[in-house]
Every structure is written in structure tokens, then in C-alpha cells.
């Protein structure tokens, strides 16, 4: 299976309710769990019937896992049949499934328009933004899994902390030593320079690239394509000045930086914002070489 099996963490619930002997609430919850499982089974049977009657449905096989709910601790796939409508995206189908069949189906989403970067997932074996993926373009049944190479928290939700740490490791903020004197004076930037960094500024932190990268899978400390792209965004911004660029090149040249990349282009292929990640990494390598030559 392409999805990493979630590592079973110790039951380390921080809520005191679980620490002592089972409370009344716990008993009620257990009871509820059992009933919820029955209810799910009933609805799924209904669904299958409906699907047989109605041809315009799509079949989704969705990865399910919850570390603390009985019956979900072992990862499994649930099947959902969703009535197809024109323009339907994978996210629409997931929302329909959740709101109609199983309210515990869990995935991150917010903007529904490919700007918040919440809903990157593994759809039919590729990293995709669910909201930007048309159902009509996919083979059925549609397999929906959490992003590979990340720890699964529940269903389609993965832990993003590692990705955020890498993003924040490259000093991802603008730095300069001089600002224009006048009040209300902006820094000047040429159109060419703004054009040069334009694609790199479009990153929405979805982590699809990181998930697709073999190197990142093998080396947990590798900065990864998105963080290197973030460094590129600043290193190439002429407003920062040469001395800061120097510092930036040192950061991306470290052991787990640009030299790890083996130009496999997987990140570039999956990026929903069409950022030429591999090119950016290659360009930084060239800059770093040029830069080192200066000091020899």
C-alpha cells in the first residue's frame, strides 16, 4: 500500500477524562461508538442499493483510520457512491459523502479554490488538491488516500508539523539592510525581477511536492522542494541586496539542502500552482557554485 501505515502512538490522551477508570461519559461514548458502527453499515448497504439503481454515481474508495475509535484503528477503505453532477470535484464528492453518509469522514479543506493549500491528498496514486481535481477526469473507482510520507492523524488528515518546520528553517522572511529614506517611499523593483520571482511566490504550502519527493522520503532532514523554493523567492529578490543573498545561499547549501536533489521532477509534476520547482533548485545550485568560486 502506498500510504504509510500510521504509527501507533501510545495512548497519550491529554484529557484527564481518559486517565482514570472509565467515566459515565466514556461508557456512553462507547455505546455510541457501537451504534455508530451499526448505523454506518446500514447506510452503506443503502448506498450500494442506490448505486445499483442510479447510473450517474461515482464510486469513491476512501482511506479510513482513527487511532482511538474502535473499528478504525486498523486502516481500511470505505466505499461511497456519490451522485455525479457537472463540475464536481473530488472535494465536492468527499463533502457529499461526509454530509450524507458518514459525518466522521475527516479531511482538511477551507477555500475550495486552490489557495488555502489544505486539501492535498493522494488521488488515484498521485498528489492532488482535492478541490482542484475534476471527478470527470478520473478513472473509477476513485481511490482517495492521505499524502504518502507523512504521518496519518485520522482518515485523510496528515501531520503537517514537519513540513512547517522545514519551511521555517530557511529564514522565510524578507531581509534587507537599507530602506529608502523618504516617508512613504517604496523600494524599487524592476518588472523583470518581479517576473523572475513571480512563480516562486505562488506556493500555498500544500506539501504535495514534499510528499512526492523520494529524497525527502529517505532523508527526513532534507529541506524539500517547497522550502528551497521559498529560499529562492528571497534569494532572487533584488530588493534584499547581495550580502543577504550570500547568507541565503549558505542556508540552502547545507548538508540537507539543494545538493540532495537528484532532479527527478516529481515535485514539479505535482505542484498545483505549476511552480517550476526543479528549475529553481537547479538555479540555486548554479548560484551557489558561482558564489563559492568567488571565494576561492
Amino acid at each position: 500500500m502506498s500510504t504509510q501505515t500510521p504509527t501507533q502512538t501510545e495512548e497519550s490522551s491529554e484529557t484527564d477524562a481518559e486517565a482514570d477508570a472509565p467515566s459515565k461519559g466514556d461508557e456512553r461514548r462507547d455505546e455510541k461508538r457501537r451504534r455508530a458502527a451499526e448505523e454506518r453499515a446500514r447506510r452503506q448497504a443503502e448506498e450500494a442499493e442506490k448505486a445499483a439503481a442510479d447510473e450517474e454515481t461515482v464510486e469513491l474508495k476512501v482511506f479510513r483510520y482513527d487511532p482511538e475509535v474502535e473499528g478504525k484503528q486498523e486502516p481500511r477503505f470505505d466505499t461511497f457512491h456519490v451522485p455525479f453532477t457537472k463540475g464536481m470535484t473530488v472535494l465536492d464528492a468527499l463533502m457529499y459523502s461526509r454530509d450524507t453518509y458518514d459525518s466522521s469522514l475527516t479531511f482538511r479543506h477551507s477555500c475550495r479554490q486552490a489557495v488555502c493549500g489544505s486539501d492535498a491528498m493522494f488521488v488515484n496514486g498521485g498528489q492532488k488538491l482535492a478541490c482542484k481535481t475534476q471527478i470527470s477526469e478520473l478513472e473509477e473507482p476513485i481511490r482517495v488516500e492521505p499524502l504518502p510520507h507523512a504521518e496519518v492523524r485520522k482518515d485523510l488528515v496528515v501531520d503537517m508539523e514537519h513540513f512547517y518546520d522545514q519551511m521555517e528553517a530557511v529564514e522565510p522572511y524578507f531581509q534587507t539592510n537599507e530602506y529608502p529614506d523618504g516617508e512613504l517611499e517604496e523600494q524599487r523593483q524592476t518588472r523583470e525581477n518581479r517576473e523572475k520571482i513571480k512563480m516562486s511566490t505562488r506556493c500555498i504550502w500544500c506539501s504535495a511536492c514534499m510528499s512526492s519527493c523520494n529524497i525527502a522520503a529517505g532523508d527526513n532532514e532534507y529541506l524539500g522542494p517547497a522550502a528551497i523554493n521559498k529560499a529562492y523567492r528571497f534569494a532572487m529578490d533584488e530588493r534584499e541586496g547581495e550580502d543577504i543573498k550570500q547568507k541565503r545561499l549558505e542556508i540552502i547549501e547545507q548538508e540537507h539542502g539543494v545538493w540532495r536533489c537528484q532532479t527527478q521532477f516529481s515535485c514539479t509534476e505535482v505542484c498545483p500552482k505549476d511552480i517550476p520547482l526543479t528549475e529553481h533548485i537547479q538555479e540555486l545550485k548554479r548560484e551557489a557554485v558561482k558564489n563559492n568560486l568567488k571565494f576561492w
Partner: peptide, 12 residues
Amino acid sequence: AVSDPSRTFNTD
């Protein structure tokens, strides 16, 4: 009522 009994990522 919330039918998902989980404490983890209970979006319901």
C-alpha cells in the same frame, strides 16, 4: 449531537 466519538480531529 455529534456522531463521531473521536477526540482526534473531530470536524463533526
